[in-house]
Simulated assay, not measured.
Amino acid sequence: MSDVPLTAPSTAPAQTQTIAFRGGGFAPHTHRWVGVAVFVVLILIAEWGTRTGWISALTLPRPSDVFKTFGELYSSGLLFKHLGPSLARLAVGATLGACVGVSVGVLIGLFSYIRSGLVPLVAALFPIPKIALLPLFVIWFGIGEGSKYALIAFGTFTPTVVATYAAVDNVDRTLIRMGQSFGLSWWSIVRKIVLPGAMPGILSGLRISLAIAIILLVAAEMLGAEYGIGAYILQAGSLYDLERLFAGVVILSLLGVLVSAIIAMIERRVLGWRT
């Protein structure tokens, strides 16, 4: 026998190394302070330029004067008197146009006969400038709220339809075939595969549609509206009151930021499966 001593196997625990999760590549990260910093820098540059004379007061008012105008609007109650009707018109018109647009877009994406009948019609309506139809809507629905709702709804409808059926078309067909191979029903495939897969494209289309709705809201309120952000901007422009004019523009910008934040919140809630 060999005189070499036998050594017992080592019972020391093996060292483990933690590896960072690398499955979230290309996922967007939110840095809210960057956007706020950009706005602050631009406002400071505008304030400095208007105070030093580098920017003419005839072309751009001081941001401090615009903020002062905001305070006067709030204290006088005119802010909510103009903002309330605008929000109501935007909510009614955009909701109607978006709901009908998503429904029609899904039907176009799912059914070939509906696609054959409606895609040429949508293609004919989509390039028409919606603002050019405002006089026609006034003739059809009157000078009151009906024409404003119709213009906003129609302007929201067409881009939503295009974005929705394009999103349905872009759903991975491999997933659909997999569902068919597992014996899922047609409705189960639509509900569990097609609609979730199309949702990112639908929400992206809604961002554009709602931005168009805000533009059409201003155009509609500039014709025959006593109160509203568009009417306020028109009054300020006719008086060449730059502070009030830019205050109205800032309100519209904040309204766009609010709409974008709502869409982002919906995306986080319904698209959590992408992370």
Rank of each mutant, 00 (worst) to 15 (best):
1 M>K: 11
5 P>G: 06
12 A>D: 09
12 A>W: 07
13 P>C: 04
19 I>D: 05
23 G>C: 06
24 G>S: 08
25 G>N: 00
25 G>H: 01
30 T>P: 02
32 R>L: 15
33 W>R: 08
33 W>Y: 10
41 V>P: 02
47 E>G: 10
49 G>S: 12
52 T>R: 05
53 G>T: 08
56 S>A: 12
56 S>E: 15
57 A>K: 12
58 L>R: 14
59 T>M: 05
60 L>M: 14
60 L>G: 06
61 P>A: 06
62 R>T: 07
63 P>G: 13
67 F>S: 10
67 F>Q: 04
71 G>K: 04
80 F>Q: 13
83 L>T: 13
84 G>Q: 10
87 L>A: 13
90 L>E: 12
94 A>W: 03
94 A>E: 10
95 T>S: 15
97 G>S: 06
101 G>P: 08
104 V>D: 12
104 V>A: 14
105 G>N: 04
113 Y>W: 09
114 I>Q: 02
117 G>D: 09
117 G>I: 02
125 L>D: 09
126 F>D: 11
133 L>D: 00
134 L>K: 00
135 P>R: 05
138 V>R: 02
138 V>M: 13
140 W>E: 15
143 I>E: 05
144 G>F: 09
146 G>I: 01
151 L>T: 10
156 T>C: 14
158 T>R: 00
159 P>H: 05
160 T>N: 07
160 T>C: 06
161 V>I: 15
167 A>G: 07
172 D>V: 14
175 L>T: 03
175 L>N: 02
178 M>K: 01
179 G>K: 02
183 G>M: 07
187 W>H: 07
196 P>F: 02
199 M>C: 07
203 L>I: 14
209 S>K: 03
211 A>N: 11
215 I>M: 06
216 L>E: 02
220 A>K: 00
221 E>F: 01
222 M>V: 10
225 A>D: 08
225 A>C: 08
225 A>K: 05
229 I>Y: 04
229 I>K: 06
230 G>Q: 00
232 Y>C: 01
233 I>N: 08
233 I>G: 03
234 L>S: 13
234 L>G: 05
237 G>V: 11
239 L>D: 04
248 G>R: 03
249 V>D: 01
254 L>Y: 12
256 G>Q: 05
258 L>T: 13
259 V>I: 15
259 V>A: 15
263 I>L: 15
265 M>I: 08
270 V>N: 02
272 G>E: 03
273 W>A: 09
274 R>E: 06
